[in-house]
Write a protein that binds this DNA or RNA. Structure first.
Lengths: 148, 148
DNA sequence: TCTAAGAGCTACAGTCGCTGTAGCATCAAG
DNA sequence: CTTGATGCTACAGCGACTGTAGCTCTTAGA
């Protein structure tokens, strides 16, 4: 017996909200399960596994379309896994990009905060720095030396 | 003379889209400018400055409500800048959190990709790792069955 | 067996920060 | 004077959910 569960239990088992499960069903990311006599969804372990897969991939930053691709690929296990590799590598590249930008931002924020000396706002460097775009390294995504 | 500009010019000068400028006006982040005889918005340099301020803060990851706060504070320059400091520090803390999580994700992605040996999907570690939450550093859950 | 709380159902609105579209009016250049 | 770019308003849509309203269903206790 696949130990049937209500939506609340699968959601809990997968670590997401009931609405999210229904949403994933709505957009076709998980199949619509059979219903009980009282019209309630009944899930088996496979549903939990798929939800865990989705959640894990989401935590890794994969978009829902990318996850849909991954699911489609994993449902055809005889093809070569180049496509899977490509999706994962694209994801890694995006993560690297986000990391770079975040690190640059972190540097700027620290610089800003270091210059806030607790005086009046009129002298506050945070406001000033935010207003002066020329001091900012963000525009010319140059990881080398923001100067200041 | 504040050298009046149409919305297209300010948008270009501030590096954002025309719609974005109108959106910021709509939500009260920039003041509604005077209009020309033909009902077109006419902006001065101050508008460009404020937009640059907003854009810069957005690039640093500040939310629009936080930016609204910063603008409100900078419009009252006689108060102490503790509040500004607090907002910037909260932002830094959030950035640090995102950095941590992203770095963890990066590690997992690299591990996944390293294990994709170009075989068939059936043997692909990427899919497997995504399905097996127990290999994941993010959160500890039941080491349930992998394999989607 | 009854009852009341809790969980499930559908359908839809709201979130955030924009972006795109439709269908007009206006403006600047040739 | 015409044409094409730009401006206007109003609204819909994006992604990935989350929340709400107003029901129905299930389940545990009295």
């Amino acid at each position: 017996m696949p130990s049937e569960m209500t939506i609340g239990r699968v959601a809990k088992a997968a670590g997401c909200k009931v609405q999210t499960v229904r949403y994933y069903e709505q957009i076709g990311l998980v199949p619509a399960p059979p219903r009980s006599e009282g019209n309630q969804r009944l899930y088996g372990q496979a549903a939990v596994d798929r939800l865990l897969f989705i959640r894990h991939a989401r935590e890794l930053g994969f978009s829902l379309p990318a996850i849909r691709d991954l699911i489609g690929l994993s449902d055809n296990p005889d093809r070569p896994c180049d496509a899977v590799d490509a999706i994962a590598k694209a994801q890694l590249a995006e993560v690297d990009l986000r990391l770079q930008r975040l690190q640059a931002l972190r540097g700027e924020l620290e610089r800003m905060i270091a210059q806030c000396r607790g005086g009046r706002i009129a002298e506050c460097r945070v406001i000033e720095v935010l207003g002066d775009h020329s001091l900012c390294a963000a525009e010319s995504h140059d990881p080398a030396s923001p100067s200041l």
